[in-house]
Amino acid sequence: MNSLRVARAAARIHPSKFIAPLQRRSYADAVSDKIKLTLALPHQSIYKSTDVVQVNISAESGDMGILANHVPSIEQLKPGLVEIIEESGGSKQYFLSGGFAIVQPGSQLSINAVEGFPLDDFSADAVRSQITEAQKIAGGSGSEQDIAEAKIELEVLESLQASLK
């Protein structure tokens, strides 16, 4: 009996509650669908808190596309391509040597890398000649450290060669 009265009282309160300002959106609180991207190298900032639509990165945990309102996370980058889809709809590609991508709350993305260049700056011939050289060292009888370094170089060069195609 008592619960019935409560239910009726609730029904009486409810309608008026919903007539009140019906989730009006003003310009200020409209949620942005852009990411603020900062792409920084030790010697240069390629992007400085610039609004972009999407960023595709190749992280150690897998390739991923980052849009606005992405869950905050920290990703270690593989030597590989980062693709940035800009507001105008065009896209830009940079090859990064390795670093970190940090997604912060509020659609902020910071990418830090040691070296990063647009693909036009690379020479396919230089990549090819370095691959043969690194393969020789990796398969040779040098010190363990030399072999490890050659294997790292091979990984970078193969990723670079795949991006250049």
Binding site: F95, G98, G99, E115, F117, F122, Q130, A148, L157
Partner: peptide, 24 residues
Amino acid sequence: WKASGLTYNRYLAITARVVRRSLK
């Protein structure tokens, strides 16, 4: 690279070096 005793710093230096050498 970690298994062969290299530090992350050294690993980054190697990847950066090879990227620089691949440029025009």
